[in-house]
Design a protein around this nucleic acid. Structure first.
Lengths: 195, 195
DNA sequence: GTCTATACGACGATAGAC
DNA sequence: GTCTATCGTCGTATAGAC
């Protein structure tokens, strides 16, 4: 055991940088936030920071990945409306990160973009999880079978993503309501189903 | 009538610039496309181009506005699913402009951003139009009244916007299907309703 | 009003010393 | 692993020709 962990300190520093970047982006938005500012917050020069990342876009992509993972850990991968509510409520507290997410999604359309793999994996996984939830409700007879679960999953995610655009413009927009509305529409039996 | 139009030639040139920028963004995406490149395409120097716009973001915002207007003129403001289909099919042909739209929506969250007024006006107008369409269907008994029309309008627009994010990552995603699915779910009477 | 030339500051990125 | 120094390019600002 001559070597303890591949990078030991390096990994810690990388995590510290990502955390600092996340804080800054959450506070000021990521637009107009330079890497030099992030570096300064970490007590580093710009090249010192760039030692840990291939490019700015690469750092941004990793910030998003970390963000996604912490959110996921906290909600234990349930993929149901309740975990959605918690995610959306925290999003509403950090507009800068919502802006980051949307901007990155746009940029990640380019397959060469550092964040492309993240989204390319994230969406199918998310759809599968939501589809599983939908199938559970179908089995309970609480969702109409008119549209198959995988298409419903895509639809639900589209609503959740799309409402963020309207919220970014008008912060009084309720980001939870549309998904709840859609679930209500899907549920033919509506009312309280005791046991 | 001593003065013919406020700027006559200037307005024409401005339009030419916007058209050129739209073409470039559609072809190469707007990321990594510099204003100098746009200026060159118009046979102008950079400052020559900037004579017509307050800033890069201002130009971008106007590109988006022009894009919106041409789409609107062509579809005569109907706000129904058929006009939506036409819009979405053209969007699928110009990924760069979809990317531009999404990125601008993210940036326009800042009230000081040049594109903020555009979105701040666009969404309410769009919602009203879609809500009107929804009310029409409700009157025909072709939409469940469980969720009020204005909330349904917001929901429909969220779907349309949100599916674009998934499409940007995976271009094989069907951008029309989710809205059709939602309308199908909303319609209790489904089948062909002859007269 | 329209446009060129020039320059400025800040950015992300890289080379090479320590 | 981190620095100083430097590079090329970006958006922007100003001066002034026509």
């Amino acid at each position: 055991m001559a070597k303890r962990g591949p990078y030991e300190k390096g990994e810690a520093k990388r995590g510290e940088i990502l955390h600092a970047a996340l804080e800054i982006f959450a506070a000021e938005g990521y637009r107009g936030t330079s890497l030099r500012k992030v570096a300064a917050k970490c007590g580093l020069s710009l090249p010192g920071l760039m030692h840990y990342f291939d490019s700015k876009e690469d750092l941004l992509a990793q910030v998003l990945r970390v963000r996604d993972e912490t959110a996921r850990v906290r909600q234990v991968e349930r993929g149901d409306p309740q975990s959605y509510r918690e995610i959306i409520r925290e999003a509403a507290r950090t507009p800068g990160l919502v802006e980051l997410f949307v901007s990155m999604a746009a940029a990640a359309g380019d397959p060469a973009h550092p964040a492309h793999p993240h989204f390319a994996e994230r969406y199918p996984v998310l759809r599968d999880r939501v589809a599983a939830f939908v199938r559970g409700r179908v089995d309970e007879g609480r969702i109409s079978t008119l549209v198959p679960p995988d298409r419903l999953a895509l639809l639900l995610i589209a609503v959740a993503d799309g409402v963020q655009l309207q919220w970014l413009i008008d912060r009084s927009t309720d980001m939870e309501q549309p998904v709840e509305d859609l679930l209500a529409i899907l549920d033919p039996g509506q009312g309280p189903e005791a046991s």
